[in-house]
Design a protein around this nucleic acid. Structure first.
Lengths: 219, 219
DNA sequence: ATTTTCTTGTTATTAAAATAACAGTTAATA
DNA sequence: TATTAACTGTTATTTTAATAACAAGAAAAT
């Protein structure tokens, strides 16, 4: 277990390594080379080796990396031995979609509660997870030891509810609303749907895309 | 209109500038200072000025930037004068959620078609957009001059359908499936739901979060 | 008129991430 | 036993992004 923080991008890739590695295990593979893992994710072997170096893992020289060991190691780094619990706040279309994603993909993160303010759905279950009224946020987060929150409420409630989440003891929030938040007391990750689409729009414009291609050729 | 490619991060911020600037216009403001715009997005004034410099826009020294001019300029850069058209491929929960986002937020990107392979929903409309069978992708993309695609199909179809999208003439794809793609012929942006959640899990872990805070203090 | 204040625009520096280069090691091969 | 081939692990370099520093100019204040 390293005592230093890992670079953001490395953490992201570790998550992806783990996913493809589980598939390799299912296919009966025990070891994998850096160039094989790299190919699965369309990145370079050096990047794979560097990431694995940073987490302090070692491969063997002619067999590559032991897949199970690597999966375990990544698990300890990302989600600890004790599984972290997640809450989804705002269980509209996006919240439900994300819940399905988490159910389908095996991750050690488990959604323990969802919250909403729509009286009609409070008390019902989504993929087996009970929906609570938003007013019970603090109580249930504390009781269930939930540490991660997914924020998918309508934008006008984002600021207020994000504050409540931190007060309730949530340590990490991923904010899917198009509202820029600033929190102290919890790690915050923003994802802006419109922005990433507009970014694609910019780089996909023929003039810009051809400039990109030219730059790649120069290398 | 600059002839050089803008940095990715700048493009992302331009998208966000535009959104908050439209709100400023609605509130009757005509000009804005870099530090005001920065505050709205919780970034630094220098970054705002630098981005605006890169797109070749100028503010006035004591009044700041003319908001309408800036919005227009960003529009020309991101979506051209001629509105770009978007298709959503795979209109499950996530696809529908994204469609709502695009409808709610004003952006110059307009969803012109959605596609699915579920016979029951083909022919029905989502937020006023007709759902077509996936087999008509090429025909409709060509007819409607759609250039951007949002990929939200089940993972097992991601590779095959992404190829069809490029063949159909789509120039930019945002891939929400947890499958790593590599395309030639279109700009590709990946977004991995699980990965970003696992990243939050890592940095939210008390030991890691406190290291982050320490690093900020040192500055 | 002159000074001060506050802002933009731009260059210089630092930090983060990706890439390249290569040393070192093991197993297979001659 | 020596040699080659094919890896890993690590350091060095380059690229990209963010931050800091500051010159220059317009309005306001004196």
């Amino acid at each position: 277990m390293s005592t230093q923080l890992l670079p953001e991008k490395t953490v992201e890739r570790l998550s992806q390594y783990r996913r493809v590695l589980s598939r390799e295990i299912e296919q009966g593979h025990e070891h994998i080379f850096s160039h094989e893992l790299a190919k699965l994710l369309h990145i370079t072997p050096v990047q794979v080796r560097r990431d694995i170096m940073l987490i302090g893992h070692s491969g063997s020289l002619r067999k590559g990396y032991n897949i199970l060991d690597l999966i375990d190691m990544i698990g300890e780094i990302i989600d600890c031995s004790n599984q972290q619990k997640v809450a989804i706040i705002g269980i509209g279309k996006l919240g439900q979609a994300l819940l399905n994603y988490l159910a389908d993909n095996k991750t050690n993160l488990v959604v323990s509660a969802v919250f909403d303010n729509n009286q009609e759905i409070i008390g019902t279950s989504f993929s087996g997870v009970l929906c609570h009224g938003i007013e019970h946020l603090k109580k249930i987060v504390e009781r269930e030891h939930i540490t991660i929150g997914i924020l998918t409420v309508p934008p006008q409630h984002a600021v207020e509810i994000s504050k409540q989440m931190v007060e309730a003891g949530i340590l990490g929030i991923i904010n899917y609303t198009p509202v820029s938040l600033q929190l102290r007391g919890a790690y915050l990750e923003q994802y802006d749907v419109i922005t990433s689409l507009e970014k694609v729009a910019y780089f996909a414009k023929p003039k810009n895309y051809s400039m990109l291609l030219e730059m790649e050729c120069e290398k």
